[in-house]
Simulated assay, not measured.
Amino acid sequence: MASTGEYKRDSNYITDRITADGDDWPVEAGRYRLVVSRACPWASRAVIVRRLLGLESVLSMGIAGPTHDERSWTFDLDPDGRDPVLGIERLQEAFFARFPDYPRGITVPAVVDVPSGQVVTNDYAQITLDLSTEWTAFHRPGAPSLYPKELRDEIDEINDVVFRDVNNGVYRAGFASSQSAYEDAYGPLFSRLDWLSARLSSQRYLVGDTITEADIRLFTTLVRFDPVYHGHFKCNRSKLTELPVLWAYVRDLYQTPGFGDTVDFDHIKRHYYVVHTSINPTQIVPVGPELSGWLLPHGREALGGRPFGDGTPPPPPPADEVVPASHQP
C-alpha cells in the first residue's frame, strides 16, 4: 500500500515457463499440476483456458478452498485436507520446497512439478498464453485458437488496458485506504467499462469474431462484478445488470461451454467477504444477488461471430471438476 492510500499489486512472480522445447521445464503429459481456487479471478482464467483446450487429461488440477489465512491457500475441500496428488495441506509447501525463504505472497494459479513437489510458476498472465501456444501437441481435436498470431498485437493492447482499469482497477478501488486513491481508481474503471460497452455494441467478441484470451480475461472480472465488486469493493456507479451491452456479453460467455460451468458463485462470495476482514470485519457473506438472470437469453448471436471459430465446444467437465449445482444459477 502506497503512502497515498493507493493499492499497489505485487507483480513479481516466478517467471519460469513450461515450454515445448524447454530444458528445465518441458511440456510433458502428467508431469505438472495446476493449482487453482475457483474464487480467484486470476486462477479462473487458467481453469477456463485448460478446459477450452481440452488439457484435463494431461494437466491435472488441484482445487484449493475459497478461503485462506496469511500462510496460503489450503486444500480443505479434499477429504483429508491434503491435495491427493501433491500430498500437501497448503500450497505454501510447494513454494517452500523450491524456495525455502520465499518472501512473497503464495498465489494461485500455480503450476507445480509433481515429481519434485516444487512450484514451477505462478505467473498467471503467462500461464494461459503458454497453455495456448506451448501445449499444442496435447490440445483436443477442435480446440479453439485463443491467441492467434495474426491478432496477438490487438489482443495484447486490449489486455493491457483491461488489466489496468478493470481487472486490477476493481482491486485499486476496493483496497484503497484514502478517498482520493479510491476515486482515482473508480473513475477509470467506469470509463473503461463504458468504452468496452461501446466496442462490444457492434461486435460479439473483443478481438476478431471468435473467443480469444482477451474475452477470458475480461469475463473473470465481470462475472464477479455484482456478487462482490459492486458492494464489497465500492464499485457502485452501476451494477453489471444495469449495463445492457456488458450484461448481455457476459451472459453470452457464461452460457458458452467452458465458461459458466467453471464458475462457483459460492466460493467467489465466501472468499472476498470472509478473507478481506479489513473491508468486511463481520465476515458476513451476502445471500444475494439473484443468479437466475445469468441464464436469460442474451441475443448476442445477432452480431454474428463464431464462439470457437473452426473448432468445437469442449465436452462436459470431468466428474471430479463439476461445480456443485447449488453454487450456480
Rank of each mutant, 00 (worst) to 15 (best):
I155C: 03
D101I: 07
S116L: 08
R172M: 09
L303T: 08
E70Y: 11
D226G: 05
P141Q: 09
E157L: 13
P109L: 01
R224N: 08
P281M: 06
T121R: 05
P26D: 12
W247T: 07
G304R: 06
L129V: 13
L303I: 10
D310P: 08
L193S: 07
I211D: 01
P144F: 04
V275M: 07
R217I: 05
H230G: 04
T15S: 14
E56W: 10
R224V: 00
A110K: 04
Y186V: 06
L222T: 02
L151R: 10
V170N: 08
A29G: 14
Y272V: 06
Q92W: 08
W25Q: 08
P66K: 03
L34M: 11
D16V: 02
N236D: 15
A20L: 11
D113M: 04
T312W: 10
L218C: 05
Q328H: 08
D320M: 02
F175N: 01
P26V: 06
R270L: 14
Y249G: 02
H232F: 13
S197P: 04
D215L: 05
P66W: 00
D123M: 07
I155K: 02
A137L: 11
D24C: 12
A110Q: 00
S132A: 13
R172G: 09
D310I: 07
Y272H: 13
P141T: 08
L246P: 05
P188H: 11
E157F: 10
L218N: 02
L146F: 03
Y171I: 03
E56G: 12
F75R: 03
T212P: 07
M1E: 14
G169V: 00
T74L: 10
R140A: 04
L34P: 01
N159K: 09
L253T: 09
V108W: 01
L291Y: 07
V207D: 03
L129E: 13
R33Q: 12
